[in-house]
Design a protein around this nucleic acid. Sequence first.
DNA 1: AAAATAGCCTACCAAGACGATAGACTACTT
DNA 2: AAGTAGTCTATCGTCTTGGTAGGCTATTTT
Lengths: 135, 135
Amino acid sequence: MLSKKSQYAFKALTYLAAKYNQGPVLISEIAKKKKIPLKFLENILLELKKADILDSKKGKGGGYFLAKSPDKVKMATVIRLINGPIAMLPCVSLYFYERCKNCDEKHCGLHDIMLEVRDATLNIVENRTLKDLIV
Amino acid sequence: MLSKKSQYAFKALTYLAAKYNQGPVLISEIAKKKKIPLKFLENILLELKKADILDSKKGKGGGYFLAKSPDKVKMATVIRLINGPIAMLPCVSLYFYERCKNCDEKHCGLHDIMLEVRDATLNIVENRTLKDLIV
DNA sequence: AAAATAGCCTACCAAGACGATAGACTACTT
DNA sequence: AAGTAGTCTATCGTCTTGGTAGGCTATTTT
């Protein structure tokens, strides 16, 4: 399951994607429109900024905005950043890989099936961007 | 990610599937062979028994065994029981559905994509059984 | 009937994740 | 200088996770 934090992140990003190239948007505006706790949203946006997905401007007329066009931000990137691994097992994860103890990956049925699941999932979230979230 | 509990459950079930129709197996034997904490495994097996996946026999010569043939136990069933929802959002879950607040499911891009992910995942785990885990 | 075996049940606990909040600080604009 | 708005650090209650302890109950063997 995606954490609430991830859901908030997607809501905020979708909001900013819809306003792409229209200047900075206040955290408070996003919080109000998307009904996200203000201070919690601050953390999330900061994290997205540090990952170069968002950029910001301080002072009057400031706010947050997308650092690149919506179709350049993959869903997989956001999920990995805010939610963590996409795979169901560490031993089939591309970005959070960990060797499986007590189980030979070469001869593990669970490993093989979870690899299939991972690929099916990645096939979707690696090929969808923020642009696809705007309806 | 699957919890450790889920991974233990699959290891134990795989072990029992390989010994299907060969009589009861001791918890302690499974724990030792699969390197699972004994008392933790007790809980897991009991839960699987209550879900009619396993059955048990008490006293000497007792132990646990599969309640039905390995090809009748779907991976999806085990995951839902031990790990919880398979979908990434409550609003696209079949067995753990919850209405999405602040988001119209009819016009939500995230909803649509997560529905795709769910279906891709289910397509795999609903069609694989314990039999497929034995290698 | 007694003893031994092995699963069943209830309770508990430490550590960490999750969701959220508070307050002070820094940078930019007017 | 004043005001605005993002940045940083810290904290906090609750829930989940992973694991442990100990006694109870049912079954079998002696």
